[in-house]
Nucleic acid binder design. Structure first.
Lengths: 217, 217
DNA sequence: CCTCGATGTCTACGTCGTAGACTCCAACTA
DNA sequence: TAGTTGGAGTCTACGACGTAGACATCGAGG
């Protein structure tokens, strides 16, 4: 990325290795996980894959946990919070946020559980949270209630992405779907054939928003 | 557990090892994960912990993935589906199911991600699914719509349990909460102090149920 | 009595996460 | 400018892990 070399007039290519940075390592780790799955990922493979010593990563991250924290932050940054519809209604805002979060997670099915198993507390994530609560507060929703709503939305979205990713990745490992007419073709199989894997997500989002906007007495 | 020894009158204890079974191994694995965390769990430790050879587990499970499938099924069985309020309204039924699922998962915070990262397809789980869809169908909800609703509820519940477990387990590893008055005491911190970690779960459940029962035109 | 399959044991292999010492070089100090 | 310092990348070592495969043991069935 930022590999502008100074004008070296003569040497064709001094093996100009771009320096290792935390951000680069995090995105490289994410790429490796995308390519080969989380189970096959290792610290040593990451070091090797970026062209350095297998142990080089430990100069920038204390351990694998810390690296995965970085991977989760890298995923969050993909949401591109700045371009959310901050000027629309709060419903549009949080809805679009959830859709983007889902799309981002599903772009990295092997890494969803890395994101889902840690609270992302990067400055970018905190800023986004604060900004969103402010927006809701400006529309008359008290911060505590706004936090409850966003927690619900976030947990639903992450849970959804995790379920989709896990189902799709494990699809070939499972037993075949029961055919109509077989004794195993029960009500559940029938209903599954009448839905797609994810056509409940947007209705669920709507239901949560409606339910919070118009609480039953 | 089932170690009733026959009345051996003389030999104090012929090393009467109870045989290894898949179910016992699964619950023992769950206990080990509960006690020491998922990262410290290993196939060898499980074999040793149950008093057999470190490699003994592989006679009953092909690999760690298969064992974890068993652990997830063991967790599902803890829900005790049979005692759900099958005679009440469908709202009471699915609500109680979600509450029990949440409680069960939070009883095993270190194992939540084992459950969350695989589709549980044991006969018990499938039976419960079919039975629930039948119940909703009897109340006039078409199976496809019922499946969408239950998927939403399940993903929200699992996402919630995962978030709570991960937050609580990682609590000491994190930076201190900002104090009121500090520059970091922003709107988010303020809202967090006005809520508990989980007081949004039941409102979220209600919102989903309401939103599905009364869809906006 | 003899075989056979299931269950548990043991050894071996390649990999992993991590610690710690080492090298090298750029930047700062005197 | 010579010397120092510290960060970045390298290398070696250690104990554990997941898994494969050969071996042993033992109860049931012919």
């Amino acid at each position: 990325m930022t590999t502008d070399s100074r004008p070296t007039g003569e040497v064709p290519e001094p093996p100009t290795r771009p320096r290792l940075t935390r951000e680069y390592l995090a995105t490289a780790a994410l790429a490796l996980i995308d390519a080969h799955g989380l189970r096959k990922f290792s610290m040593r493979k990451l070091g090797t894959a970026v062209g350095f010593d297998p142990m080089a990563v430990y100069r920038h991250y204390d351990d694998q946990e810390a690296l995965f924290d970085g991977v989760a932050e890298a995923m969050f940054d993909e949401i591109d919070v700045d371009t959310l519809p901050w000027d629309g209604t709060w419903q549009e805002l949080v809805r679009e946020y959830c859709l983007r979060l889902r799309d981002t997670l599903l772009r990295h099915p092997h890494a969803v559980q890395v994101f889902a198993t840690r609270p992302v507390r990067s400055p970018a994530a905190i800023d986004a949270g604060v900004k969103m609560l402010s927006e809701l507060q400006a529309d008359g929703i008290p911060p505590a209630q706004a936090l409850r709503l966003t927690r619900c939305l976030r947990e639903f979205t992450v849970g959804h992405a995790l379920a989709i990713a896990v189902t799709k990745l494990g699809a070939e490992r499972r037993s075949r779907k029961p055919e109509p007419g077989s004794p195993d073709y029960n009500l559940l199989a029938e209903a599954a054939d009448a839905t797609t894997l994810d056509d409940h997500f947007e209705p669920g989002l709507t239901a949560l928003l409606e339910g919070f906007a118009h609480p039953t007495s």
